[in-house]
Amino acid sequence: MTAVPTALTKKDFKSDQDVRWCPGCGDYAILNAVQTAFANLGKNLHETVIISGIGCSSRFPYYMETYGFHTIHGRAPAVATGTKLANPNLDVWVITGDGDSLSIGGNHLIHTLRRNVGLKIILFNNRIYGLTKGQYSPTSEKGKRTKSTPMGSLDEPFSPISLALGAGATFVARSVDIFAPHLISMIERMDAHRGTALLEVYQNCNIFNDGAFRGFTEKDVRSDRVVELQHGKPLLFGGDHSKAVAFDSGFVPQIVGASDDLPNWDERAVSPAAAMALAHASEADLPVPIGVFRDVDRPAFEDDVVGQVAAARAKRQESMAELLAGSETWTVGG
């Protein structure tokens, strides 16, 4: 997506509200990236709507000088679906967190993805409940000690990427709060997609889960611990791109040495199998994939809804009086 010059700058997207996240929170970087990307994309303020649920990240709409709706816990995709159906011309973005969209709102997330409603969903994954002061979340690693799990959490986390792929998502990507250029480019990619676009952003909660992603995001380890998915290119990583991720015969991702005959990453693959295998790979054994896991075309839900209404209208005209009368009437004299 090439950036179109616009009258609006990043600053124009800032509202007059004081931002109230904890100092040092990863949310600031994401807000900054969104504002930058929106300016790059030449968006205007009045046709942009940001809809959020509940949680630290869901305060986001207050800080944007666009239309904004801070809804209730977990329900942002459902509210946003109604908004998009009512006016498909609106550019509707959903801001949510791991508790909001994967726990209380899990149902709405999967069904939104399945329907392919034209919503751009940015999922801030900090692997913790921040606003309620530090309980484990559905993405917290097993055994995590928190206020609600003093002996360690017992449930297995799930990967938002694999959940989204499983739900039939047409666009799935991942980025990291502090990888500004990459994050901005991912937001721009989401914008170009028709249908639901889900972006998982690893976001540091420096108060309740500080350093959750440090193991692969720190500058000195980044090149060895992160692999960037780039369409049409092999999955190279390492300081000098000396290593690569490849799949063995059992479709298990492996680290191999770079060579000329490595397969290229295909984000448009019909089968989501490769993307799924990467989403399930262990963070400890493999570099962490970022970038676009999947980007395929499928009609957007709102287009089909509008299409049915238009087809019904073209086929049948009925006045209000005809509708009220129905098929069988009788008259009482007078």
Binding site: A78, A80, T83, N87
Partner: peptide, 9 residues
């Protein structure tokens, strides 16, 4: 929620 979202729009 979808109905509320539509009313909002």
């Amino acid at each position: 929620c979808a109905a509320i979202g539509a009313s909002y729009a």
